[in-house]
Write a protein that binds this DNA or RNA. Structure first.
Lengths: 148, 148
DNA sequence: AAAATTAAGGTCAGAGAAGGTCAAAACATC
DNA sequence: GATGTTTTGACCTTCTCTGACCTTAATTTT
């Protein structure tokens, strides 16, 4: 079996034991599996993405860590399939359509929808294309996974 | 846990016990936590900044002290003064402090705070510095303006 | 009253401790 | 052999901690 898969399964094991949320030390894990530290990043970014229902946070420096949280869908997975619709980049208009839908289906209040639209409009994401649509996709997916 | 975090929590504890305003002795604290005095400055400047809703005053010399006061965001639409605090750029940690403050004083619901944090964290705004802090400031200000 | 001493707190740069990024090389798959 | 996935390493950024040196205020000495 591939190392990445071994590490993935190890992390999965930890997550289920620890009830959905774990904290990793990147360097320790790398030593444990005799690989370079960046392999841990590879596993995390390919296997524990928002698309797959995970939130990942981290801190550098002394006392640094990587925290992985498995999100339990509160709505039967509707939001997760929404996240998977977003893709690598998304225009403001498309995103707006999605948010409007969420509002119509009462997944979001009016104020929540307003906040999200304010966060992802062209004025907020003052970046050139294709950068802007790329960041918008990340922001949107991140928001959605966090409200599941 | 890191020393800085321990000291931060100790100070937080004091602040809530003392009803929002405390006076510290820098050297005493340093002895208490067996660290150099300047570590206290480090904790204060990284954790109790104006962005996070604190005012810090101090006096040197005999009888010197450090006073930390937690600012209570004034009722209603004082979002404007928050916007001014944001400036042209803002770190995620500072922004997080601001949003937490808004939640504490019921300017934002938990879900609204979550959405905003998800929108402006490092994972969402996957850009290099100083670009990241600049875009974060724009996003945050835009959100605040839209919820006024 | 001026000078000296003592008692605070402030600043800043450097070292150390983590995690992040990116592209090239190696390996698989079709 | 072209394409996709995994592995690796060089280099980067961020966060924390420390110590040397500085500034200010109160107290004591002369």
């Amino acid at each position: 079996m591939k190392l990445s898969t071994v590490i993935e399964e190890f992390i999965n094991e930890m997550i289920s034991k620890e009830d959905g949320e774990i904290e990793l030390k990147r360097n320790e894990l790398a030593v444990q599996f005799s690989c370079v530290p960046s392999q841990i990043n590879y596993v995390i970014s390919t296997r524990f993405s928002p698309e797959r229902g995970y939130i990942v946070e981290s801190r550098r420096g002394g006392g640094g860590y990587i925290r992985i949280t498995k999100v339990i869908p509160s709505d039967g997975g509707d939001v997760l399939s929404l996240i998977n619709l977003v893709g690598e980049n998304i225009s403001f208009d498309d995103a707006k359509g999605m948010i409007k839908n969420c509002f119509d289906y009462e997944i979001l209040t009016e104020k929540e929808a307003k906040i999200i639209l304010a966060a992802i409009n062209e004025k907020s994401l003052s970046l050139r294309q294709p950068e802007q649509d790329r960041v918008r996709a990340k922001v949107l997916k991140n928001i959605l996974i966090n409200i599941m």
